[in-house]
């Protein structure tokens, strides 16, 4: 009994170290068929006369299964994280004030003033427009600044580097541009249907965008959504008539000048309003009557500025992402 145990231990030890006789129960791999080409024959190391040490076996196993195990671990971890976060937040949500109830803490005197006096204090029929462009205008100014920051950063990351590269190797220019362009076929030349539809729909989209921007203080919408609609008109034009045609009237310089100017007007008019408000000066801007187009003080011009910024920025994003240049 003792001897047998010793034997088993010795066999096991040898198995771990990878030398000595094979254990009895090991499955012998079948010999490769003789007609196999030489390169596919198992290497000497892995033939049945040589056993790998446990370290080698582990490495081999890791090489084959490591990525798999890692990805299983990764997805397991992600599911665990997800479940923990969701459970925590669900427990929190269950404690929150009930949905849609009118006595919730959020429906307090702040809201009452926005709704009851918002009309004549800001002159806007759309309370949300009055809220974001007059009561809480600083946030909205910050939001435009975020957009500006992102536009400038994307311009830096995608725009500038490309030009450098082209400058370094001018011979590559035609090749790279054509590769990026032609992946989907030339966009402009042989598409009469696209151009026909575009010529009909671009004015309609532009009109729609302008209406949404200009009526921002009366109806849902406003500078941001209107600007996004306007940018789709530009994108469509660029697809139908080719980016070069759009480039003629809208290039990097135009973008920077127009959005900087619009943002500047925005900043200065809001700055005036902040300054007079905080120092209790009287503001000279008339509020107008609610419901008219020319009402709501600064909200209409601000919406137009925001619309310009957004349309320009989103088209810039499109242009930079599609061909890496504006």
């Amino acid at each position: 009994m003792h001897e047998e145990l010793k034997n088993i231990w010795k066999n096991f030890f040898n198995w771990v170290l990878g030398n000595g006789p094979r254990p009895e129960n090991e499955v012998i791999p079948p010999d490769p068929p003789p007609d196999l080409p030489f390169t596919q024959k198992p290497q000497d190391k892995y033939s049945r006369f040589h056993e790998a040490t446990i370290k080698e076996r582990y490495e081999q196993w890791l090489e084959i299964h490591g990525l798999h195990i890692f990805s299983i671990l990764y997805s397991g971890l992600s599911i665990l994280t997800c479940v923990v976060i969701v459970c925590l937040l669900l427990a929190t949500v269950a404690e929150l004030p009930p949905f849609g109830h009118e006595r919730n803490p959020a429906n307090n005197e702040v809201i009452r003033r926005y709704v009851e006096h918002g009309g004549h204090e800001t002159g806007a029929q759309n309370i949300v427009a009055g809220l974001i462009l007059d009561y809480r205008a600083f946030d909205t100014f910050g939001e435009s600044a975020v957009l500006f920051t992102a536009a400038v950063s994307v311009l830096m990351i995608l725009g500038a580097s490309r030009r450098n590269k082209l400058n370094k190797s001018p011979s590559l220019k035609s090749e790279t541009t054509s590769r990026n362009f032609l992946q989907r076929g030339p966009p402009s030349l042989d598409e009469p249907i696209l151009r026909g539809v575009a010529s009909l729909s671009i004015p309609a989209i532009l009109m729609m965008g302008c209406v949404v921007v200009i009526n921002g203080h009366l109806t849902p919408g406003g500078g941001f959504s209107g600007g996004a609609i306007l940018s789709t008109a530009l994108i469509l034009a660029s697809n139908a008539y080719g980016p070069e045609r759009v480039h003629e009237f809208y290039n990097e310089r135009t973008f920077i000048v127009s959005s900087s100017t619009a943002l500047m007007i925005y900043a200065l008019s809001k700055g005036y309003s902040f300054f007079t408000g905080a120092n209790h000066f009287h503001s000279i801007i008339p509020k107008g009557t609610i419901g008219n187009i020319f009402s709501a003080g600064l909200i209409l011009p601000l919406n137009i500025c925001v619309g310009l910024i957004v349309a320009g920025t989103l088209y810039t994003f499109y242009s930079l992402f599609s061909k890496g240049d504006l």
Binding site: F224, A228, L314
Partner: peptide, 13 residues
């Protein structure tokens, strides 16, 4: 307001 913006931005741009 949100619906218009989301339709134009989230689904569109």
């Amino acid at each position: 307001d949100l619906a218009i913006t989301e339709a134009a931005v989230g689904a569109g741009v």
